[in-house]
Write a protein that binds this DNA or RNA. Structure first.
Lengths: 237, 237
DNA sequence: AAAGCCAATTGACTCAGATCAAATTTGAGT
DNA sequence: ACTCAAATTTGATCTGAGTCAATTGGCTTT
């Protein structure tokens, strides 16, 4: 949204003490490779609402999310928006065939990424099939998630969509931060609506309904999952 | 659907005279590699309606479509179906992380595939980063298409969905067989509905409406695109 | 603490697309 | 050509989610 004011940490970044080391692309590299890799990426910070890249932009960098949440979305000419995913720490962004990012990415709250210039990264990958394999794995995993989301968008009711989203989001946070029934939702209701192919009003009403039925409690900045079993039942339908 | 009666050509297959050579995964291999590759795959035929693999199946093979059209779909427990894509010659199927196909694949009409057992294919790929790179490209291209389809499913009207589908399908056939305003539609109306997140009735009505407005003509086994420009306008909206 | 602002909720009403129900067309088998 | 089953089209009606319009609630600013 607003002009990107980016702070670049001049040098104080080390893969060895990186939060996502092990989960991200770099998990495929050994200690020696990692030391070389370190020089390719630089940590960059974004504030909430800032756009990291836009769909029509020529791809000049790849990004490894280290911290925070991003919304990934596409816009129709008339302004309708579809959020195609939320990126969390460990996610790798920027791979494409066309030479352009085919979706836009905004920071939701403060975000730190590890940014790689395209050309050097491409050269580095050239003689490291392990890294390519890792990137391929990430792409295939995302493809599978994308297909699941198509099912949700095309064939599920509003109630099912919201329940499925809450469970899926919780699942991702569990994998990242461990189990908790308190589920922070850093994205807005509008973001959730645009992710689920609904309107903001329908999302709000569905949240209220789930709360009335004792499935969730709406808390500040998120929800508390009171009855996971019932939520699962709603999601499966 | 019906039990799979599969005919395996004992030996008469050569990559060098393969229809999709150049477009498919094998385009990344040189002549020598191709000769070795030849022994890994075997051509298998399926009749219309036969299931090539199911979503819950453990993946034991990869498939390279040589001829015909397949529907790729996921089912909800209650039987609702979402078609996540149609596979055409040159498409490569079976890559996944979970060890299972995460969607099912049926032949629509007669289909020929080049089938590779998972383990030997995996071994072959191991020392051929070019092939891995090619597979990665295909995955990334599919991911981009999947995101486009999410936009369609989540944010487009029935009219836009149908117009977008017809143009996109034509585009794929053009790339495969050259330009023509006659667009064969081997899949049923139900397939189209399940691909677009609509009902069969809505698809049928929309076809009729497009014909009334002179945008298309409904012909046997397909449509004729009378007014591509108007179709584009409807699709963009 | 009052004012202003934006996000979220709630309510009333509408409508695009679903559902239910026949026709009608198509195709395969005899 | 004739029969039966399946696919498609068409019509009538219904409804889940959208639209439009206030309110409410939380923050920030003054």
């Amino acid at each position: 949204m607003k002009p990107s004011v980016v702070m670049i940490e001049p040098n104080g970044h080390f893969c060895s003490d990186c939060a996502v080391r092990g989960a991200a692309v770099c998990s495929s590299l050994d200690a020696a490779e990692l030391r070389e890799f370190e020089h390719l990426g630089r940590r960059v910070h974004f504030d909430g609402g800032e756009t990291v890249f836009s769909e029509e932009d020529i791809t000049t960098s790849f990004y490894n999310v280290l911290e925070g949440v991003m919304r990934l979305y596409k816009l129709l000419p008339d302004g309708r928006r579809q959020i195609v995913g939320f990126a969390l720490p460990g996610d790798f962004l920027g791979m494409n065939i066309s030479g352009r990012h085919n979706f836009s990415a905004d920071a939701i709250g403060v975000v730190t990424v590890c940014q790689f210039a395209k050309a050097p990264f491409g050269r580095f990958i050239e003689d490291r099939p392990q890294l390519l394999k890792r990137i391929n794995e990430l792409a295939i995993r995302e493809l599978s998630q994308a297909r699941d989301h198509m099912v949700l968008l095309g064939r599920r009711s509003a109630d099912e969509k919201v329940a499925t989203f809450l469970l899926g989001w919780r699942e991702r946070l569990v994998a990242l931060k461990g189990l908790s029934d308190t589920v922070p939702l850093p994205m807005s209701r509008q973001d959730i609506a645009d992710y689920l192919g609904l309107t903001i009003e329908t999302v709000s009403r569905t949240f209220t309904k789930l709360e009335r039925h004792g499935v969730i409690e709406i808390i500040h900045g998120g929800i508390s999952l009171l009855d996971p079993a019932r939520a699962e039942a709603l999601a499966a339908a």
